[in-house]
Computed example of a mutant assay.
Amino acid sequence: MSSLAARDPATPSGIAQNRELLLVREKSAPLHGGIKTREISKARFGRVRSFHDEIDRRHDQVLEPTFLAPTFSNFWRRRTLLHQLSQLSSRRQCMTSPIGIVTNKATPKLQLSTLSHRFEAGGQSVQAISNISLDVAPGRFVSLIGQSGCGKSTLFNILAGLLKPTSGSVLLDGNDITGRAGLVSYMLQKDLLLPWRTVLDNVIYGLEIQGTDRKTAREIAEPLMERYGLGKFKKHYPNSLSGGMRQRAALLRTLLCNNDVILLDEPFAALDAQTRFRMQEWLLTLWKDFDRTVLFVTHDVDEAIFLSDEICVLSPRPGRIADRFEVPLPRPRDRDVVTSPDFVGLKQRCLDLLFADEHAGGSRAA
Rank of each mutant, 00 (worst) to 15 (best):
K164Y: 05
D201T: 05
M245D: 00
V136N: 14
A29Q: 04
E281G: 09
Y186R: 00
K234F: 09
N239H: 08
A160P: 01
F72C: 15
L68K: 01
A356Q: 01
N239A: 15
S153W: 05
K42T: 13
P138K: 03
V136L: 10
P341Y: 14
A270T: 02
F355T: 09
V261C: 01
L353P: 03
S167I: 12
I220N: 12
L188W: 05
R364C: 07
P65N: 07
I101H: 06
R324P: 11
N131G: 02
D135N: 10
T275M: 00
L183D: 09
L230G: 00
L251A: 02
L159W: 05
S133T: 13
L68Q: 06
E120Y: 14
R38H: 01
D352G: 04
T166F: 06
G151R: 02
S13P: 12
L23Q: 10
Q61P: 10
Y186H: 00
L353W: 08
G139I: 04
N104F: 03
A29T: 02
S90A: 14
A217G: 14
C94A: 06
V24L: 15
D260F: 11
S116P: 02
Q247L: 01
K232M: 11
A250T: 00
E54P: 04
S167H: 11
T154D: 08
A10C: 12
L255P: 07
L284Q: 13
T11R: 09
D342V: 15
L21K: 15
I55E: 12
D176W: 08
S363T: 09
G33W: 09
P9W: 07
L81K: 02
N104V: 01
P65Y: 11
P330D: 15
T80Q: 10
V184H: 04
L183T: 09
T216F: 05
S86D: 13
A69C: 03
K215H: 10
G319D: 04
S363V: 05
R197Q: 13
E303P: 12
R292N: 10
A10I: 14
F72L: 07
L224G: 09
F296L: 06
T114F: 09
K152I: 02
I55G: 07
A5Y: 13
Q247A: 02
L81M: 05
V261I: 06
V297I: 15
E266R: 02
L286Y: 03
L284S: 15
V261W: 01
G146N: 04
F119P: 02
D272V: 01
F67R: 15
D334W: 11
G161L: 02
